[in-house]
């Protein structure tokens, strides 16, 4: 599946909604409902493809994920008290946060802190304003939301205030660059059990394995989680250049120099002055 950024407004990853048949192996559920009812609800999401290739002119797109509720209580459903949060989490990478300070009048990087497992991207779609779905405590326990994902510092001996400060700066920077995004109302129920989640893919969405996760809440209580994997790869000429530059860097360098010499020579031929 190829996605050309500006020309195609939405990446539609269709789900195969075979309600029972696609019961997948589920990841560990962080926190189960204290008293699960007899016919427990569950949530399913499916992707029509597990691989998206984006071309180099990709300038961001919407990713649509379809999903369904199983065993939904019709009464609660009518009252609109089921809530769904869908998250697309990018691969985790170590990140260094640096802070500038004024030294002799010059602004320079002084302090830094490394965080080991920062998701490169994190986009969220919710049915409602997050505060209305459940308590902040639940979000923290589920590590759900850009402000709650657990980010582990490399140097744990630093005082907590400093770590906190760098952590806040990190989340803030990720939000400003659009890599961490939140779409309130991005999840919409199409029927009583079928929903559609629209997530934002930033123009600089990282390549690698992304994890789509759907969380189901009933009356503010977390019920179930389901996840699916999605690999994003870059395709096209520019990607080949990137690979060549990294895998055969010596040849790349020689080629770049030869190309420059050739351009200089050609320029002299075309615009001969003497």
């Amino acid at each position: 599946m190829r996605v050309r950024g500006p020309t195609l407004p939405a990446v539609t990853v269709l789900s195969l909604l075979l309600a029972v048949a696609c019961a997948r192996a589920q990841g560990p559920v962080p926190r189960a409902d204290p008293e699960p009812p007899a016919n427990a609800e569950s949530i399913q999401i499916g992707l029509s493809t597990d691989r998206i290739s984006i071309t180099s002119d990709f300038s961001g797109a919407d990713l649509t994920i379809f999903g369904a509720l199983d065993n939904a209580d019709p009464l609660i459903n009518r009252q609109g008290r089921y809530d769904v949060i869908v998250v697309l989490e990018g691969p985790a990478r170590p990140v260094m946060v640096r802070r500038k300070q004024r030294i002799l009048g010059v602004w320079m990087n002084t302090q830094s802190e490394v965080f080991v497992n920062v998701p490169v991207s994190y986009s969220v779609a919710t049915t409602r304003v997050p505060q209305d779905i459940t308590d902040p405590i639940n979000y923290r326990q589920l590590a759900l939301g850009a402000d709650n994902i657990y980010i582990e510092p490399l140097d744990k001996d630093l005082d907590t205030a400093t770590i906190k400060e760098f952590e806040t700066a990190l989340r803030q920077l990720k939000k400003t660059t659009g890599l961490y995004s939140e779409r309130i109302g991005g999840v919409q129920f199409l029927t009583q059990s079928l929903f559609r989640a629209t997530l934002t893919l930033a123009p600089n969405v990282p390549v690698g394995t992304h994890k789509a996760r759907a969380f189901l809440f009933r009356n503010g209580i977390f019920i179930k989680e389901n996840s699916a994997q999605l690999v994003i790869v870059k395709a096209g000429f520019e990607q080949s250049v990137f690979r060549f530059a990294h895998e055969y860097s010596l040849f790349y360098g020689i080629f770049a120099s030869v190309l420059a010499v050739f351009t200089g020579w050609l320029g002299r031929i075309i615009f001969r002055r003497d």
Partner: peptide, 18 residues
Amino acid sequence: DLFVRPPNLYSLSALGAL
């Protein structure tokens, strides 16, 4: 750029494998 307070004091840089 060196002497005027930058709009954001913090910056991120990706690290290779640790």
